[in-house]
């Protein structure tokens, strides 16, 4: 059990959405779910801060949402499928979000994917890169 969870920590650049993350991110992710309704998307777009105040998140989580800092949201318990509702509300695809999270310009990211994607070499284990 412990081994099960610890094994994932060795994977670079990856946060596994386990119990710890799920508990941390519960209200952040539930806020994201609320964006599945058109009227809520409108309300959020009209006044992001006011909308976020209605959800019992931490201020850190609210700031990360406003900054559209998806890596930070993930660190604070956000799950990518939930966070994608923010992307959808902004009119952004998963690929746009990926470019934000990897810090690579969108066109460059797209070209990487067309060339076969990010290689697993050096990306399997944190120990590979030491």
């Amino acid at each position: 059990m412990k081994d099960y969870n610890e094994a994932f920590n060795d994977v670079p650049g990856t946060v596994i959405f386990d119990a710890t993350q799920s508990r941390l991110g519960f209200h952040l992710n539930q806020f994201c779910m609320s964006l599945m309704k058109e009227e809520n998307r409108e309300a959020f777009k009209a006044d992001e801060k006011a909308y976020l105040q209605k959800h019992p998140m931490t201020d850190e989580q609210r700031d990360a949402v406003i900054a559209r800092d998806f890596n930070r949201m993930i660190a604070l318990g956000g799950n990518i499928y939930f966070l994608a509702k923010i992307g959808a509300t902004d009119g952004h695809s998963f690929q746009k979000l990926a470019s934000l999270m990897t810090g690579v310009p969108e066109e460059e990211y797209r070209d990487m994917m067309l060339a076969g994607g990010r290689s697993p070499e050096g990306n399997r284990s944190k120990s590979e890169n030491r």
Partner: peptide, 13 residues
Amino acid sequence: QLQGPRAGLINQE
């Protein structure tokens, strides 16, 4: 992989 700095990983093998 859709999340984080490792997004875009593809392993054809």
